[in-house]
Lab assay of single mutants.
Amino acid sequence: DHWHVHIDGERIRLDGASEEFIRTLEELIRRGTDARELKEIIKEYLR
Rank of each mutant, 00 (worst) to 15 (best):
F21C: 01
R31G: 11
K43R: 12
K43T: 12
G9D: 07
R36A: 14
I7D: 01
R11E: 15
E40V: 08
G32Y: 03
Y45T: 11
H2M: 06
R36P: 08
S18I: 06
R11I: 15
A17S: 06
L25K: 00
E19L: 13
R47G: 15
L38E: 00
L14E: 00
S18K: 08
R30C: 08
H4Y: 07
E20I: 08
H4M: 04
D8W: 00
R31S: 13
G16N: 13
H2C: 04
H4K: 01
L46F: 13
D15G: 07
I22S: 02
V5Y: 02
F21W: 06
R31M: 14
F21T: 03
D8F: 01
E19R: 07
Y45F: 12
G9F: 03
V5N: 02
A35V: 13
I41W: 09
R31N: 13
S18R: 05
G32V: 03
K39F: 11
S18Q: 07
E10N: 05
L46D: 06
E40Q: 12
A35I: 11
I42S: 00
R30F: 07
L46A: 03
E20L: 07
L28Q: 05
D8Q: 09
E20F: 05
R36S: 13
G16P: 04
G9W: 03
R47I: 14
T33K: 04
A35W: 08
H2K: 11
L14S: 01
I7V: 10
D8V: 03
I12T: 02
D34L: 08
L28Y: 08
L25D: 00
W3I: 13
E44H: 09
E40G: 06
K43F: 14
L14V: 13
L25Y: 02
L25V: 11
T33W: 01
D34A: 09
D34I: 07
L14G: 02
T24N: 13
L25F: 05
L46G: 03
T33C: 06
A35F: 09
A17H: 04
W3Y: 14
W3A: 15
I29Q: 04
A17M: 09
R13G: 15
I29V: 09
L38M: 05
L14P: 01
G16W: 09
A35M: 09
F21R: 00
E40M: 10
Y45G: 10
V5Q: 03
I41T: 06
I7C: 01
I22H: 05
D1K: 09
G16M: 07
A17F: 09
A35C: 06
R13M: 12
A17Y: 05
I42D: 00
H4Q: 05
E37Y: 12
I29Y: 03
E37N: 08
E19I: 12
E40D: 10
E44S: 05
D34V: 07
I7G: 01
H6D: 14
